[in-house]
Design a protein around this nucleic acid. Structure first.
Length: 350
DNA sequence: AAAACGGGGCA
DNA sequence: TGCCCAGTTTT
């Protein structure tokens, strides 16, 4: 049996039941693929079900507001995926009459659809002989063929794509592509792969040369940046809070948060109070207090956010931008803000 | 070519 | 703590 035949046999016996597994509906495959980019199946699945429930057809997604889409996406991370998802839904409805393109080349033009996703959709939905190369495939190929090129180097990316094309099963690309990814996720996992019961163990180069733990090779990631966030939770006498939308570049684009003072280090109350002058909004201040004594460390893949929430009670009622506590929960916010709101609610409204 | 972009799970 | 996840886009 060839490599791809063994993958197909293994897949037939070991595949998980997943909500999108049986379908060829490009909308559903596309949605699942976008959600699973850099995201584990267990984390993405509830969101997939939620989206299909709210938007059964691509038209439903296209007709929604970005705000609503972001709210449903809240907590899944990499929010550009949600913005691109929405834009692509509108594009598919507006420019393609509601039907997704059926070739790799055309799919690649859609926002948020790169090499992997274009390959996945074209092969899974339309049987196009395009090999997928995701993190699982890199791992399986690197180990089985003993390739020590860095998977995130330009040369490595090119090499693995070519190798993937050479060893794929073009006759049943739909199952083969899903099979090799499933194989990487279940059998040839990053840590503690099950080599003892692996159908490929006799011919696996990494196993034979005792290099399973060293492959695949990946170039070092960039180091993490520390940032200091001071969120200003203005609370007026009518218990309304000031909320604003993140614009421009950077993290959490188009999501909502409290007015933010970023500093070079943790602030004491005096310096914080002084910096309140920088806002356009200048209410009469009644009190200033830290909500959390120690900074909350919110970790992103590339940033550590040392965060303090300052509760600033103000005189009178909120001007424009005031949001009641019930309404705050309707806005799409980062997990950092959502967690705070949860704790704040318990502290002040119980 | 490298950096930016989230959040969670696991040893 | 560091690594990885059905990657893509921007710099």
């Amino acid at each position: 049996m060839t490599f791809s035949e063994r993958i197909l046999v293994w897949y037939d016996k070991n595949k998980r039941t997943l909500p999108w597994r049986g379908t060829r509906d490009p909308y559903k495959i596309w949605l699942s693929e976008i959600m699973l980019q850099q995201t584990r199946v267990v984390q993405g699945t509830p969101y997939y079900l939620k989206f299909i429930g709210n938007y059964p057809k691509v038209h439903d997604l296209a007709n929604a507001s970005e705000e609503e889409v972001l709210k449903l996406w809240q907590g899944l991370g990499y929010y550009s995926r949600a913005r691109n998802l929405h834009a692509t839904a509108k594009m598919v409805v507006g420019e393609y009459g509601g039907d997704f393109p059926d070739t790799y080349k055309e799919l690649l033009k859609l926002k948020g659809v790169g090499d992997y996703t274009a390959s996945a959709i074209s092969s899974i939905c339309f049987d196009r002989p395009e090999p997928v190369v995701d993190g699982n495939v890199y791992r399986v190929l690197a180990r089985y063929f003993g390739v020590d090129l860095a998977i995130n180097s330009t040369e490595g990316v090119k090499y693995f794509k070519k190798l993937a094309r050479e060893v794929m099963n073009a006759k049943n690309i739909r199952d083969y592509n899903q099979g090799i990814m499933e194989f990487g996720a279940i059998q040839c996992s990053p840590k503690k792969p099950n080599c003892d019961e692996c159908p490929l163990n006799k011919s696996c180069v990494a196993l034979q040369t005792n290099k399973v733990g060293e492959l695949p090779v990946k170039l070092k990631k960039t180091k993490v940046r520390d940032r200091y966030f001071n969120y200003v939770v203005f609370m007026s006498e009518d218990t309304k809070m000031m909320l604003e939308q993140r614009k421009g570049k950077g993290i959490w684009q188009n999501l909502w948060q409290f007015p933010l003072i970023e500093s070079e280090e943790s602030l004491i109350k005096e310096s914080f109070t002084r910096q309140l002058n920088s806002f356009d909004y200048q209410p009469e201040i009644v009190s200033v207090d830290k909500f959390n004594t120690d900074a909350i460390i919110h970790k992103l893949s590339h940033q550590h956010l040392y965060t303090t929430f300052w509760i600033v009670h103000t005189k009178g009622s909120q001007q424009d931008g005031g949001v009641s506590f019930e309404d705050v929960e309707k806005y799409p916010v980062p997990v950092l803000i959502a967690d705070f709101l949860e704790r704040f609610k318990k502290t002040y409204f119980q």
